[in-house]
Design a protein around this nucleic acid. Structure first.
Length: 416
RNA sequence: CGGGGUAUAGUGUAACGGCUAGCACGAGUCCUUUGGGAGGAUUUAGUCUCGGUUCGAAUCCGAGUACCCCGACCA
């Protein structure tokens, strides 16, 4: 992608109405646009990051047998009234008939929708287990949207639903999902702690959250510094300094961001939707189910919170919108333009995602933009590098700059 | 939903109740520049909405709306 033609504009000024690091850097860098409080557009650059996150999630969900589908955002009132969760504040009105109340909730959860669908397709124990997921927009009647992408009124969420013949099988799958979640967060370069938490609205059982330690987090957790055992303060009987219930190490209190959670809700949604199956003995039983969520925008915001410096974002290779930022300096001086163009097309031919800053701007402004956007590698072509017969490569994370031979083999080896 | 704060060109900011609402960035044109946000010339665009006080309101008052922060609630 040529930067001169890309729908991207960075800003020298930080937004006046946002304080959080993730909102500041993502807006300044041209990744997102705030339309309203807690409601963001993902611009081309930011959307690429979201797609990277989605891709990782899809691979790991598919890897544990998850089957992607897509459910509606408008939920007829019979769904949520069946479970007593109809929300009078998150409605969509349709002008049909003489309805005295709105017909639809705008999607804020999909257990009911999925349970009704499952009931139509499950009849035998042979139909179980299975798991479906989607990446969908969720809406919340959020009293106070805050902290940029971390708490929105509208956000993208991956929700996985699993269905089982008994608790034992649900528990088995719960741990499989846990492991997949660890992989997802690791691939996003996030250190997530598996945290014991309360069920909240969804279940009376304990649930687990994936928490990333970060000062702007809204949650407070107790973490063992030795074994990473963690409990949410909401349900914890621990206090800071206490011994860890698992290994006896010292427990610390930390602020953290909840990037994912997993629930077992048993038959809570099977019963209202008559989601039953017949077992080997001909007995009718309710299906056991679980739900597992990850907020994509929140993951993106969290990565920015934990991975940045005073110059901008530092994307991990796995989430970076592009792998390489190719920058030319003084493109009008002899040979620079043609060398940069040549590099650009050969990188593309190799399938390397490259953002090519072909703009005729001063060195300083191009460097500043490059650091702000945070692509892991900056590849530089200038009169100086041409004179040396080399290319300059900068690692965004370490700041290390080196001159390398100007051949693609060396370059592509380095950035992989 | 309780409390506090803010609202001025596209962005960031200045202006005692009184002069043509100033500056920087951005954007347009021209010239000179080019290794960490270049210089000059020139152009461009603004007081959130409604009402009130006043000879006169960006400025004071009231209401509304939006946004930010703290708390409660929540992925």
């Amino acid at each position: 992608m040529r930067q001169s033609q890309y729908f991207l504009k960075t800003s020298k000024n930080t937004p006046s109405d946002d304080v959080s690091i993730n909102a500041t850097l993502l807006e300044q860098g041209g990744f997102v646009y705030k339309n309203s409080a807690g409601i963001y557009s993902y611009l081309p650059l930011g959307w690429r990051v979201v797609q990277k996150i989605a891709h990782i999630i899809r691979e790991e969900m598919d890897g544990i047998g998850g089957q992607e589908m897509f459910m509606p955002a408008l939920h007829d009132k019979h769904y949520l009234k069946a479970t007593g969760r109809w929300d009078v504040d998150v409605v969509f009105k349709v002008n049909s008939g003489d309805q005295k109340e709105p017909q639809f909730n705008i999607s804020w959860t999909h257990e009911e929708i999925m349970s009704e669908i499952a009931a139509r397709y499950v009849s035998s124990y042979r139909d179980l287990p299975f798991a479906t997921y989607q990446i969908q927009t969720k809406f919340r009647n959020e009293a106070r949207a805050k902290s940029g992408l971390l708490r929105g009124r509208e956000f993208m969420m991956k929700d996985l639903y699993s269905f089982h013949r008994d608790e034992e099988d649900l528990n088995r799958y719960y741990e499989i999902v846990r492991d997949a979640y660890f992989k997802i967060f690791k691939r996003c370069d996030l250190e997530a702690l598996y945290t014991l938490a309360a069920g909240g609205d969804f279940t009376s059982n304990y649930t687990h959250e994936f928490q990333v330690v970060c000062p702007v987090g809204e949650d407070t957790i107790f973490v063992c510094e030795k074994c990473d055992y963690a409990e949410n303060k909401e349900i914890s009987k621990l206090k800071k300094g206490n011994p860890c219930p698992k290994c006896g190490g010292v427990v610390y209190e930390k602020k953290s961001i909840e990037v994912g959670n997993i629930f077992r809700y048993g038959t809570k949604y099977s019963e209202p939707f008559n989601l039953q199956f017949t077992d080997e003995k001909g007995q009718r039983k309710f299906v056991q189910s679980g739900a597992y969520g990850i907020g994509l925008g929140r993951v993106m915001g969290t990565v920015v919170e934990v991975s940045h410096d005073s110059n901008g974002i530092i994307w991990p290779q796995s989430l970076a919108p592009f792998s390489v930022h190719l920058v030319s300096l003084e493109p009008t001086s002899p040979g620079v333009h043609s060398e940069a163009e040549g590099l650009y097309s050969s990188l593309q031919r190799r399938g390397i995602e490259v953002l090519y800053d072909d703009r005729d701007l001063s060195a300083g402004s191009k460097f500043t933009d490059s650091d702000l956007i945070g692509i892991p590698w900056r590849l530089l072509v200038s009169p100086k590098t041409r004179k040396a017969g080399k290319l300059e490569v900068k690692n965004r994370k370490t700041g290390k700059i080196e001159l390398v031979p100007a051949d693609l083999e060396t370059v592509s080896k380095l950035i992989r």
